[in-house]
């Protein structure tokens, strides 16, 4: 088992600035979502990905505009990383009519098909076969598109994971499966309920795939592995399974204070915050404090503007209830 070394120095300056900008935006968005929840403006549940930004950012920057992203209920960052509107996303969290899904999906289902964000799936494992299907479609249409599917460590123990991996390998599909191993399956340590130490990487050999374990808190590493795995898929080399080690700074969902995690572990991982790590690296690479500060200020402005847009929206429209079951826009089941 190898943890790939950081690819420091190999990533271009402009790409690095883009990676940093995206991570900061994703961080600020999630923090704003949490603040709006404290204001009781975000209802229902939400599953924040604070601390896991490097994975979505690395892949988001490496993907082609027409590639497909499939993600989970912890998917705000993956959806936004494709260019989806922050304002529409926040409005959706707030149940507003100007929400991304007009209030019909909510936090766990953010989708923006025109940006390649093909959906956030809230039943663990379901989207792996669906991503394989999108890759199958790309393969037979010879479109050169790649499907990237993000999921958590807990997903590796559900049947759909194994069905999808096997089918993707047998059909040599252009799909990349990215396991975000944040060490906890909801409230339970993943190692306590899994037969192997590395829940995805140790299973790769069962499907004839290379075991790939990477530092999911290092944006350079994530960008590098994204380019490798997407490139392989696009070139007809078939699927990859990547396990990216990371840590969520908060609990599983807004109902979870995450008190089951040892303090030393939390401290250690907070020190490895992907944004802190990357900021330091940018400074070491000679990028000035002013330029970094400017990126941070712009991210904050973007989230502020998105918040205003969302707050300004009217409540979701009740006449949406019986719309868009069918392709004719209706919900009609009888004549």
């Amino acid at each position: 088992m190898r943890i790939k070394a950081p690819a420091t120095g190999e990533v271009e300056r402009a790409t690095r600035l883009r990676l940093y900008q995206l991570m900061v935006e994703l961080r600020d968005f999630e923090q704003r979502a949490y603040e709006l929840f404290l204001e009781n403006l975000v209802r229902g549940t939400s599953h924040l990905a604070l601390g896991q930004e490097a994975i979505g950012a690395g892949y988001g920057v490496a993907m082609r505009a027409d590639d497909y992203t499939f993600c989970t209920y912890r998917g705000h960052n993956h959806t936004l990383a494709r260019g989806a509107s922050m304002g529409a996303a926040l409005a959706e969290l707030m149940g507003r009519g100007n929400g991304m899904l007009h209030g019909k999906g909510g936090s766990m289902h953010l989708t923006d098909v025109k940006h390649g964000a093909m959906g956030s799936y809230a039943i663990v494992g379901a989207h792996l076969p669906i991503a394989a299907g999108a890759a199958w479609s790309a393969q037979v249409r010879k479109s050169g598109q790649v499907a990237v599917c993000f999921f958590g460590d807990g997903t590796t123990n559900i049947g759909a994971f194994h069905e999808a991996l096997n089918l993707a390998v047998v059909w040599k599909l252009p799909v990349v499966f990215v396991c975000e191993n944040n060490l906890y399956m909801e409230y339970t340590p993943i190692e306590a309920v899994t037969a192997v130490k590395h829940p995805a990487a140790d299973r790769a050999s069962a499907y004839g795939l290379e075991s790939i374990l990477v530092d999911g808190n290092d944006a350079d590493v994530m960008y590098d592995i994204a380019r490798q795995t997407i490139g392989k898929a696009r070139a007809g080399g078939g699927p990859s399974l990547v396990e990216a080690l990371t840590y969520r700074h908060g609990g599983h969902s807004r109902a979870d204070p995450a008190q089951y995690r040892p303090e030393a572990e939390v401290r250690e991982w907070l020190a490895r915050d992907p944004i802190k790590v990357y900021r330091r690296r940018l400074l070491e690479a000679g990028i000035g404090e002013a330029e970094i500060g400017d990126i941070e200020a712009r991210a904050q402005q973007k989230v502020d503007a998105a918040t205003e847009e969302a707050r300004g929206g009217a409540p979701a429209r009740v006449d949406e209830i019986e719309r868009q079951i069918w392709s004719d826009g209706s919900a009609t089941w009888r004549n």
Partner: peptide, 12 residues
């Protein structure tokens, strides 16, 4: 699950 999931991903 793979059969129906693949059909869905392909249809979309």
């Amino acid at each position: 699950q793979a059969i129906i999931g693949a059909a869905m991903g392909a249809a979309m």
